[in-house]
Computed example of a mutant assay.
Amino acid sequence: MTDVETIAKEDSARIGEILKGAVDPHVHSGPSMAPRAIDHLDLARVYSDAGFAAMVSKDHDYSGVMCAKLIEDHHPELTTKVFSGIVLNNVVGGINPYAVEHTGACGGKIVWLPTLAAENHLEWEKSSGWQHPATTQKMRHATAVPLFDGDKLRPEVLDLLDVMAATGMALASGHIHVSETKVVFAEAKKRGVERLIFTHPEDIVGASMDDTKEIADMGAYVEHSLAFFLEGSKFRTRSNEDLKAFIDLVGAEKTILCSDLGQVGTLSPLEGFQLGVATCLSLGYSDDQIRAMTATNAADVIGLEG
């Protein structure tokens, strides 16, 4: 039995207490074109039982704000607040300020720049062996959603950033390349966007440790997907030591841990958080530091009240 497994077993009550008030700002519950192990409502029930304060569902193909509103209206017994956002892939028209305005007006919390349709993602996909689970011969493959015209941001991206500033939603980098993230985030700050999330520098986006520190110094939270670090996750590409290096690079005060789970055949989102806390305990982080990474920081970046 590993140290993490021992801690998870012997300190389950402590882990449960640390997770009271937790926020999962990046979780892939369903329904979705891709197979999901749990839907938004059932996950809200699971997280409510565990004492989570909030969750933000993320789907690569649609805005989940209407699902979140139905759950809020028809299940007042749930103590976990359910939110969503929008990912700017082909299905919603790419960089679509109209869709972003609508998402914000309906309570959305996060706007993700392109993921499956990011130029960087499509290049990464060629050598990664990864294929979107929804890919079939009857569906078009994702096509690139460009952010730049030469070395300048496209007009629709500037329009998007102005909308972001007006709505107060958080802007997450998605799967664009780290070099693009630096330019977009710098312009976003100039235009009054106050909430920035650097999405999983550990995978896909081509970020070095220096890149990650630079973006954190710009005022962004650095969000790490537990799915890439945990033993038992089918998406694991990184070690516990890698997680510690990333956290120590910017500090617990600038780090967010999300599950990035909900897919079939792997850890559940709650298991991901429980093992994530056990991992952090094994790495020597205090209860307060872990609460910052699993609750306080995410609550701040989505503007969670109460």
Rank of each mutant, 00 (worst) to 15 (best):
T2F: 09
D3S: 07
V4Y: 09
I7Q: 06
A8E: 15
K9W: 07
K9V: 11
E10T: 14
D11L: 10
D11T: 08
A13K: 10
I18F: 09
K20G: 08
K20C: 08
V23S: 08
P25V: 07
H26P: 05
V27P: 02
M33Y: 12
P35I: 08
P35L: 06
R36Q: 13
R36M: 13
D42K: 04
V46W: 04
D49P: 03
D59N: 15
D59L: 05
D61T: 12
D61P: 04
G64V: 05
V65E: 07
K69Y: 07
I71F: 01
H74D: 15
L78G: 01
K81W: 04
V82T: 14
F83L: 04
G85K: 00
V87R: 01
L88V: 02
N89H: 03
Y98H: 12
G104W: 00
G104P: 00
A105M: 03
G108D: 01
G108P: 02
K109I: 00
V111Y: 00
T115N: 09
A118E: 07
E123N: 10
W124I: 09
E125L: 11
H132C: 13
A134F: 07
T135D: 15
M139T: 12
A142K: 11
T143R: 14
V145C: 14
V145T: 14
P146G: 08
L153R: 03
P155E: 15
E156Q: 12
V157R: 06
M164V: 09
A165V: 13
A165F: 13
A166E: 03
T167E: 00
G168F: 13
A170S: 13
I176C: 07
T181M: 07
T181N: 01
K189D: 10
R191H: 08
I197R: 03
F198R: 11
F198K: 10
V205F: 12
G206Y: 03
E214N: 07
A216D: 02
Y221M: 08
Y221Q: 01
G232H: 10
S233G: 09
F235Y: 12
N240K: 05
E241K: 02
E241T: 02
K244G: 05
K244A: 05
A245S: 13
I247F: 03
E253G: 14
E253Q: 12
I256M: 13
L257G: 00
C258W: 02
G262I: 14
V264E: 15
V264H: 11
G265K: 12
P269I: 07
P269E: 06
L270S: 13
F273W: 05
V277A: 10
T279C: 09
L281E: 01
L283T: 11
D288G: 06
D288V: 11
A292Y: 06
T294D: 10
A295C: 09
G303I: 02
